[in-house]
Amino acid sequence: MTQRLKHIVPNVVVGVWLAMGFLTVQPVSAEEKSKVAAPPESTLQSVSVSAPMVKGALPADDPNAAVWSSATMARFPMSPQVHWPTRILDATVKDLNVRALHDGTNVAILLEYADPTEDPDDAAAIEFMVGDKKAHFAHGQPMAQVEGGPVNIWYWKNKDNKGVDMNAKGFGTIKVQTHQDVKAKGTYANGTWKVVFTRPLATEHADEDTQIATGGFINIAFAVWDGKKDVSGELKEKGSQKAVTSWWNFRAEAPPDYSSYYYAAIAVGVALGFQFVLIRKLKKGHSA
């Protein structure tokens, strides 16, 4: 009896040890990954805008289209522009909600924010880096120790209600492009602006336009102007006086990729084969 027990106890221990070992390593490494990766709750603050791929036409003219709900809403707090004179210490818009979609050819980005009044000078803009060089979020201004690149700005103003495609590399260098690829349309209702920007994912002017390859992350930043006039008739926010964000991330999602499932199936096959060979070898060794 004790002889049997002597054999059984190590057996049990080995089995439990193996199973526990694998089971603990698994969640531990997953937990560590998620600590780095998981973005904060989208209701509070996002780190990234993700544009899923949709079939059919993009809702370029319709910020209320049902298809927008297939995109996860990202939320970015905004700051008054205090980085450079002329600064502003309080901006109207405090938070910006962003959704994006693409159809494999074009991308549509919907900005949504609260603004108590509709004014002709209300405006919004999206900013990207152009090319491989990093650009400072404040209009690609020069950096002391890093050679920066230009920024591409997509601009919309209520009274024109169209998109303007621009570039800048430093303060006071803003320039409207000769090729206008950006479309924009704003709709105001119930104290909320909804502005949709659309553009082809790729353009022929890679030195001026940001190029959006599906699957990859690029930098994105936002600005909003409240075009309300004060009692003296001056615009409350104009030029560098605006609500801004610094750089966050943007990605046009790649078409679904199932290769991970194939790799997993192959790995399961290899593991089964390994077990089969191991047990056969052990049995042979035992009987020999």
């Binding site: 694998f22 290899v270 077990q275």
Partner: peptide
Amino acid sequence: LRYGILILFPLLVGWQTYSSTAVSDAPPS
């Protein structure tokens, strides 16, 4: 228990492979 482990081990290897090759939703750290 032996059969349990012989089944569990390949499944864990498969899961590990899936999670290391699946496209991440997180922006680059």
